[in-house]
Every structure is written in C-alpha cells, then in structure tokens.
C-alpha cells in the first residue's frame, strides 16, 4: 500500500531523517515509536507530503507521490490524518467538521455527507454532539471527532501523529478504543505513539526510529520481549 525508499529530510542544517526505507502492506497496523526528536512525526508527515522530503521516494499504491505535486490532493483524499492537537475547524459544528471535506472535495451531496457523518459519529460514540462546536468538547471527544472527520473521506490509510499525547490521562482510553476498533475493521494504519501497551496489543509491526534512522522493524511480541539494538533496549527501559 505504501512504499518508502531512502527518505531524507533536512530542516536547515538539521538532518531529521537519514534515509529510511520500509513498506506498509494493506490492512497492516504499524506503530512508529522512538525517543522524542527521533523523526517519527516527520516520517509520518512525509507520507502525505505535509513535509516535502529532501531526498527519497514515497509511493502510495502504484503512484509516486514525491514527484507529482499537482496530484498530491488526489492522494491526500485517500490518506486520513489525525493530529496530536486535533485541528478541528473551530468555526464549524461537529457535523459540519465531518461533512465539510466530502462536500467540498468529493462533491458529495450535502444530505448524503451528513447522513454518513452521523453514522461515523455513532461509531465513535458521539452521536449526541453533532450540533456542538469543538470548543465545547473535551480533549478525548475532540480527538474522536477528528478521527471521524478523517474517516469521512473513506480513506484507504490512516496516519495518527501522537493522537493521545495531548490528552488528559482519563481520556486516552476512549480514543485508543476507537483506534482499536478501527484496526480490527481492517484499516491500514500508521501510528506514531508513546502508548507502548497499545502498540504491543494492536500493532502488527513496530518501527523503532532513533536519530533519523530506522533502527528496528519487528513484530511487537519480539520487539518488546527482546529488542535487538542497544538503543531500543535503552529506550524501552526508560518508558516501560
């Protein structure tokens, strides 16, 4: 589904990604973990070109996204993204947040888009909030709306950029539950996260990044039981 080849990204003099290559297969759930500043988020953001790679290639299905800047919108439609800080549209109600992109980008009739949006809200357990503005929701509710908003475009892949890092601890579970059920439904997902328990339980693969390098690529059971590299061992010692 997604293929990444020799991905480099430099901000000024700072090389954040130093040549990463990997693939994500259809239906696979990949957890991207690593210490802060390791380049996890940048890696994720290069997949839908929110950051332009300095070097290297990214394919989405058979399409190379790194060369065709003009077609990036077509690709982004199929790649949902959830941000650490939600980025809901504050001037729109919950329902409008969900229906906006389908109506504007896909030209879905408004009524149809709203019906689909209500279904999604039910799925994330927020059917009673459709008329609220984001400012009146809790963090967990906001993130669930954000997930529903991304799902409203019927994406083939979902990218999660530290989706629970900005949440109060008691709200983390409600978001992870939604993500878990999404993974179970067969969605292809790439998740940058610090929730090791979640990664262990839900992910098919764990990518461990450190200092811009993909250090380990393993099944969660293996990775968490016997990390091969010293760096991963040190990291796990700190977080577990």
């Amino acid at each position: 589904m997604i293929k990444i080849e020799n991905l480099h990204k430099t901000f000024g003099k700072n090389e954040v990604l130093k040549g990463i290559s990997t693939e994500i297969a259809q239906g696979e759930v990949v957890a991207v973990i690593g210490p802060s500043g390791s380049g996890k988020s940048t890696f994720l953001r290069c997949i839908n070109m929110l950051e332009e790679p300095t070097e290297g290639k990214v394919w989405f299905k058979d399409q190379e996204v790194t060369t065709q800047a003009s077609k990036i919108q077509q690709v982004r439609k199929k790649i949902g993204m959830v941000f650490q800080h939600f980025h809901l549209f504050p001037h729109m109600t919950v329902l409008e947040n969900l229906a906006y992109a389908p109506v504007t980008v896909n030209k879905t009739p408004k009524r149809e888009a709203e019906a689909a949006a209500r279904e999604l809200l039910k799925r994330v357990g927020l059917e009673d909030k459709e008329g609220e503005y984001p400012g009146r929701l809790s963090g967990g509710q906001k993130q669930r709306v954000a997930i529903a908003r991304a799902l409203a475009m019927n994406p083939e892949v979902m990218l999660f950029d530290e989706p629970t890092s900005a949440l109060d601890p008691e709200m983390v579970k409600e978001v992870l539950d939604v993500m878990k059920s999404l993974a179970q439904s067969g969605m292809t997902m790439a998740i940058v996260t610090h929730e090791m328990g979640f990664a262990k339980e839900v992910a098919d693969r764990v990518l461990f990044l450190d200092d811009g390098i993909l250090v380990e690529d393993a099944k969660p059971a293996e990775f968490f039981a016997q990390p091969k590299s010293e760096r991963a061992q040190a990291f796990l010692e700190k977080v577990l």
């Binding site: 839908n48 982004r76 993204m81 549209f89 906006y100 504007t104 980008v105 475009m153």
Partner: peptide, 27 residues
C-alpha cells in the same frame, strides 16, 4: 490562524482556494 488548520485542510485534500475561503479567512 493556527498552522494546524492549514495542515488539517491539506491532509483532507482541500484545495487552496476552498481552504482560504472556508477555513482560514473565516477564522
């Protein structure tokens, strides 16, 4: 306006014009 608004719009595949008119300028 928070940069995230722009990124969220872009990630949804919203065009520059729609993003400006409906997301950024109203805020």
């Amino acid at each position: 306006v928070d940069k995230g608004q722009r990124e969220a719009s872009m990630a949804l595949g919203v065009s520059y014009g729609s993003m400006m008119r409906q997301i950024i300028l109203p805020q």
